[in-house]
């Protein structure tokens, strides 16, 4: 792989993220901010698989963050802290929900697809709101983070940081392989010309559904991490506005680019942090900024790094 500008920037970026805890040993605030940004990066990269590669505009992706986080929360509520139980269950539920939601929504197109993914996600949001046992609106406090038989201690901020970093790298690597595989060729083809794809002999629905499930599972992972990280879960995590934020991260970073969503998530969170320090009306600045990016910077931040290639 030859190093173009994009490669250099991304390598520097990842090295910076990798070294941050060493450079800022006693700055838990920044370590926390970056942890969060990495977790949302994982979610954004998974959403990009749908949005950027497959042209499936899912407006309910945050639901899988909620599923992951609630899995940790509910297990913790029953005092089951074993990550080897919590995590596989969280990923499995994400897969099943994505399979059901995908099977329903992928039968529709365009605006209908957007509306149905949104409506299905809101159903789970309202489910969360209505279950008093699990705190309803207020959600659950996760007093003990997932335990992994003493192999790694997530209560340790820096150890957790590197766990998240590892999963971010893993996610990027997996999505990279996926999008360049035969499977990825079909998913991308569906974005470009679905009619032609079907005429060639691809049963497009099955491939899209599979992509939908994979994206759901990866985002479920982000939810498992986020629940642990915030020590807390509530229905708000899967509210449709959260899904909208994920979409913004992807668009801001660059649809259909491997690293774009990571940059998008980081810039999104950093800006939110900086602007909300300046004024409580930060959204008045943030909103127009996002609109400007969408209108004037097609291809997002990624497009600043030169002509897009496949990786």
């Amino acid at each position: 792989m030859t190093m173009n500008r994009r490669g250099v920037v991304m390598t520097l970026f990842l090295i910076t993220v990798a070294l941050l805890p060493i450079a800022l040993v006693d700055q838990p605030f920044y370590i926390g901010l970056f942890s969060r940004a990495m977790i949302l990066s994982i979610a954004a990269v998974s959403l990009n698989l749908l949005l950027g590669y497959g042209n499936m505009i899912s407006f309910g992706h945050a639901v899988y963050i909620g599923i992951g986080a609630y899995t940790v929360g509910i297990f913790a509520y029953y005092e089951i802290y074993d990550g080897f139980i919590q995590w596989p269950v969280g990923l499995a539920i994400s897969a099943v929900v994505a399979l059901i939601f995908g099977a329903i929504s992928l039968r529709t197109r365009g605006v209908y697809f957007i509306m149905i993914t949104l409506a299905l996600a809101q159903m789970l949001y309202f489910l969360g709101v209505s279950i008093d046992e699990y705190g309803a609106d207020d959600g659950l406090v996760i007093d003990v983070r997932s335990e992994f038989a003493g192999l790694i201690d997530l209560e340790e901020g820096i150890a957790f940081y590197y766990v998240i970093f590892f999963f971010l790298l893993l996610t990027i690597f997996i999505v990279h392989r996926l999008t360049n595989s035969r499977f990825g060729v079909v998913v991308r083809g569906a974005k470009s010309n679905e009619v032609r794809l079907r005429a060639l002999g691809f049963s497009v629905y099955q491939y899209k559904l599979t992509a939908f499930v994979i994206a759901g599972v990866i985002c479920g992972l982000a939810g498992l991490l986020l629940g642990n990280f915030t020590n807390f879960v509530n229905p708000d995590m899967m509210h449709w506005t959260r899904s909208g934020e994920l979409i913004f991260m992807v668009v801001l970073g660059g649809l259909g680019s491997l690293f774009g969503p990571v940059l998008g998530a980081f810039v999104f969170l950093l800006l939110e942090e900086i602007l909300s320090d300046l004024t409580i009306h930060w959204q008045i600045i943030f909103g127009p900024f996002l609109i400007a990016v969408v209108l004037f910077m097609r291809g997002g931040i990624d497009s600043l790094l030169g002509k897009s290639t496949d990786d």
Partner: peptide
């Protein structure tokens, strides 16, 4: 190549790079 792929078995192949196949 996509046309060839369509008739070379299923495409639930997630790992190998298609462009170099």
């Amino acid at each position: 190549a996509m046309a060839v792929q369509a008739h070379d078995g299923h495409s639930f192949r997630f790992w190998r790079e298609a462009r170099r196949d």
